[in-house]
């Protein structure tokens, strides 16, 4: 139709914000609250949504996704909780060490890859560690609509139990916390057994926990549609490699500590993305030519795609070898 052709920019729409509160919760986790710089209300969001936080770290732009954990009904703030990762790529350290109240930052509009199934007769949440954040928003949303939910939350120690006390106090009959240092384990098999038809379970936490919930549920005859999970992968460092981008007609170098997507962006290529964590599928890129091995780390492509050598998700996956040419 071309009524007014406008090329979509990569990523979701952006919102200029000011840091309104920095609240350390324990040794590892700090909450950051944001107000809109223009004073307006934030867009409403659905529980489970994330925002991509743009960090200006010197001349480097970092883009990290974090679950929105504030109450979706409160349009005056957006809040995220960030776990410090001393071995990570530096985004969480930047948030913890550099970000102060009053700083100007940029968030994207909410994107939801982990939404509630509103048909569910009951919602059962399994959280591990910082995986509690999306459930904070889900609980707030379900409380407003009288939803039927319960939370099972595994933490390392009471001192690191982010929001554990707050949630337990607010919903003593619905929140169950399990502490590793007291040898408490989520009784998953018992919990999966006996749930009414139409129950949906949601899991957010370490990879091992997500796999455990999926596998146990499948073994108990649960349909895969009733088991939801979200895991953002952080790109892992790896050997530098060279990539030819044939549409853009340039050859770029991917450094040890940057992702292929980040390298493309650094070189001015407007590559599509949403989650930057291997989950949403937006950055899927066709491989034109490859001589070497792919290091696929995404959750988007299936095994067949991975084996085909015809596609790559540049947000988390890498390449080791002689030649890589991409259709970008």
């Amino acid at each position: 139709m071309s009524a007014a052709p406008q090329k979509a920019k990569a990523g979701a729409e952006k919102i200029a914000v000011t840091v309104s509160a920095v609240v350390p919760l324990n040794d590892l986790v700090t909450r950051f609250e944001f107000k809109r710089t223009d004073g307006a209300e934030f867009p409403p969001f659905s529980a489970g949504a994330h925002t991509v936080v743009e960090m200006q770290d010197g001349d480097r732009t970092r883009l990290n996704p974090y679950s929105l954990m504030s109450d979706p009904a409160d349009r005056s703030i957006y809040a995220i909780s960030v776990r410090r990762d001393d071995q990570g790529r530096g985004g969480s350290l930047f948030m913890h060490q550099k970000v102060k109240v009053g700083d100007a930052m940029t968030l994207t509009y909410p994107v939801n890859l982990f939404s509630l199934d509103l048909r569910a007769k009951k919602h059962v949440f399994f959280a591990g560690g910082i995986g509690i954040t999306p459930f904070k928003a889900m609980i707030a949303q379900l409380e407003q609509s009288n939803g039927n939910w319960e939370l099972h939350y595994a933490c390392r120690t009471p001192a690191l139990g982010t929001y554990a006390d707050e949630l337990t106090n607010a919903y003593p009959n619905k929140v169950h916390v399990y502490y590793d240092d007291q040898n408490q384990v989520i009784p998953l098999e018992d919990l999966l057994d006996g749930q009414p038809l139409g129950t949906h379970v949601y899991v957010c936490g370490p990879t091992g926990m997500i796999d455990w919930v999926h596998a146990t549920a499948a073994a108990h005859g649960w349909p895969s549609e009733n088991v939801h999970s979200e895991e953002f992968l952080a790109p892992q460092p790896g050997k530098p490699f060279e990539v030819r981008l044939c549409q853009s007609d340039i050859t770029i170098q991917v450094g040890e500590h940057e992702s292929l997507l980040e390298a493309m962006e650094r070189c001015g290529v407007d590559a599509p993305f949403l989650c930057r964590g291997g989950a949403c599928g937006q950055c899927e890129t066709d491989v034109v030519e490859a001589e070497g091995d792919f290091v696929h780390r995404d959750h988007w492509l299936d095994d067949e795609d991975h084996a085909s050598g015809k596609k790559i998700m540049p947000c988390v996956s890498r390449f080791v070898g002689k030649t890589l040419v991409l259709d970008r």
Partner: peptide, 16 residues
């Protein structure tokens, strides 16, 4: 379908 699943908040689309 692939396009529509990724229509995001604040970025509506259209066709005829």
């Amino acid at each position: 379908l692939k396009f529509l699943l990724n229509v995001q908040q604040g970025a509506p689309a259209r066709r005829l």
